[in-house]
């Protein structure tokens, strides 16, 4: 993995050529969140990012991967060396997962999507390959465009290739389930659970770590209720994002089923979340960002993060 200067990779240059400098384009991943932030306006030219793992360095805990690679394929390669990333696996691509920016529902254990991106290469509205960030885990060289790209829905540039941080898969992992316990109490009692979920009456917990650590935390759970081994629960399709304190006391409308993630603030339920308004000062900056990065509005026209 080299430093970021001067991209010569023909695959990336070809992708830049494809994005071009004129006409509207929309970038396609696995189309798992196609309507998020608005469906692309008009009939933009559809493009796909290149695929493939460029370089995997388990000893550095980094992987350089093209944005069109599926998250499933990436994780399969990493698992062979006992590693994983924070990206959620929901059938899409690496670029899509980053552009959408959603977290895995077990983000407490796996890390947040936005923190996994070390270096980004994207094709700008002018058809040029732009790099930001770097290949090392720690880096404060210049403005943090990787952070800005996560969750930007491809409106500022077309993600081409990234370097992601990987993490070791813990030695042991275990889901436990109980009824009639307070999920917040469970969360507070554990050191760093990977997930604590509740549907209001039942609680699911994922513990990960060294065998003896999982054993110890299981004992903590046993002191709170009658936990037994279980599978992770099935998650309803729509995700709501809220403060962890609100998620802990969530009651759904019309008694819909739901799963709340304690300590994280995600709710999975059957209906979409009513969106709230953005801070007007934030809207001003967001619109300037879009105008500065994409002056002609050709990248994913009609979409805007935070828009209903």
């Amino acid at each position: 993995m080299s430093a970021t200067l001067a991209v010569t990779d023909p695959t990336l240059l070809a992708f830049a050529e494809e994005v071009g400098e004129t006409d509207a384009v929309a970038i396609e991943g696995g189309r798992t969140r196609w309507d998020l932030g608005g469906i692309p306006d008009g009939e933009p030219r559809l493009i796909r990012a290149p695929e493939g793992i460029v370089e995997y360095r388990p000893e550095e805990m980094t992987v350089q991967v093209r944005a069109g690679t599926s998250v499933g394929e990436l994780h399969a390669t990493l698992a062979a060396k006992g590693q994983r990333t924070a990206l959620p696996e929901r059938g899409g691509t690496v670029g899509g997962a980053l552009a959408v920016g959603e977290n895995d529902f077990r983000a407490l254990g796996r890390g947040r999507t936005r923190e996994s991106l070390l270096q980004v290469r994207y094709v700008s509205a002018e058809g040029k390959v732009v790099s930001s960030g770097g290949p090392t885990v720690k880096n404060v060289s210049g403005f943090d465009l990787p952070r800005l790209m996560v969750g930007s829905l491809g409106t500022l540039g077309c993600l081409a290739e990234v370097i992601l941080r990987t993490n070791p898969i813990p030695a042991e992992s275990r889901w436990l389930h109980a009824e009639g316990v307070d999920a917040q109490v469970v969360f507070d009692a554990l050191l760093n659970p990977s997930a604590v979920l509740t549907n209001g009456t039942e609680v699911w917990v994922e513990l990960e770590g060294h065998g003896p650590d999982v054993e110890q935390q299981t004992k903590v759970l046993a002191s709170l209720g009658s936990f037994s081994d279980a599978e992770a629960p099935e998650l309803p399709a729509h995700r709501w994002s809220m403060k962890p304190s609100d998620a802990a006391t969530f009651t759904p409308v019309d008694g819909e089923r739901f799963i709340a993630t304690i300590g994280l603030g995600l709710i999975f339920t059957d209906s979409p979340q009513p969106r709230s308004e953005l801070d007007p000062a934030v809207v001003v900056i967001s619109e300037r960002l879009k105008a500065n990065f994409d002056p002609t509005g050709r990248l994913n026209p009609g979409r805007m993060p935070g828009r209903n």
Partner: peptide, 29 residues
């Protein structure tokens, strides 16, 4: 406090705050 003198709230306590990650862009600037 933005260079204009207005205030803005960046990020949020929610699991996934809406919009661009201006919080992330601001940190380290």
């Amino acid at each position: 406090v933005l260079p204009s003198g207005d205030t803005a709230m960046l990020g949020g306590l929610e699991a996934e705050p809406q919009g661009f990650d201006l919080r992330g862009a601001f940190v380290g600037s």
